[in-house]
């Protein structure tokens, strides 16, 4: 079926089986490879992107539900050359190791900061439940606090 939506501010139209996970449409049809496949079971969070500003695990989100929605992926998180505060903080704290899970974490964090501008450690524990095998959680926590600071500082 034909499905139309905006991705990273750009209108797209795809012709796909309605049940195809949005993840595969984003990766293989729209060629945006920053959204990762980790488990296909909504368990690891590597495929997290935003649907109308909400964090969604795209491996478990049929493309048909994207109709008319605003989708944002890691490639659309920055505004032009200006990295998103979350990305800036990730740079400052040198968070990634292998880097595979990081886009999902950054997308989850961006959604968190939209809802809770100054998350406490408890908020972070309660909201960020993706999986990182390299064990970068310690730096991520620092980066999340730093991202909140950057985001809340008028430029």
């Amino acid at each position: 079926m034909k499905i139309q939506f905006n991705i990273n501010g750009k209108a797209v139209s795809v012709d796909e089986d309605a049940r195809t996970p949005l993840l595969w449409v984003v990766r293989d049809v729209l060629d945006l490879k920053g959204t990762k496949f980790g488990c296909g079971k909504a368990a690891c969070g590597a495929c997290t992107l935003h649907v109308n500003g909400e964090a969604v695990r795209s491996c478990s989100f049929p493309v048909e539900y994207a109709e008319g929605k605003e989708i944002t992926t890691i490639e659309g998180l920055a505004k032009g050359d200006q990295l998103h505060p979350v990305q800036q903080a990730w740079m400052e704290e040198i968070v990634p190791q292998c880097g595979y899970c990081q886009p999902g974490f950054m997308m989850s964090t961006a959604a968190l900061l939209d809802k809770i501008p100054n998350p406490t450690d408890q908020d972070i524990d309660d909201n960020i439940a993706n999986i990182c095998r390299c064990g970068t959680y310690y730096r991520m926590r620092k980066a999340i606090h730093r991202a909140a600071e950057i985001k809340n500082t008028p430029s």
């Binding site: 996970p21 997290t48 909400e54 049929p62 539900y65 809770i116 309660d126 960020i128």
Partner: peptide
């Protein structure tokens, strides 16, 4: 659910046979 970990982060309006969610 919580702000960035809502039920709808994973659960949509129908069963998903691909993911088993």
């Amino acid at each position: 659910g919580t702000a960035a970990l809502k039920c709808s982060t994973c659960h949509q309006k129908a069963n998903n046979d691909n993911s088993g969610v």
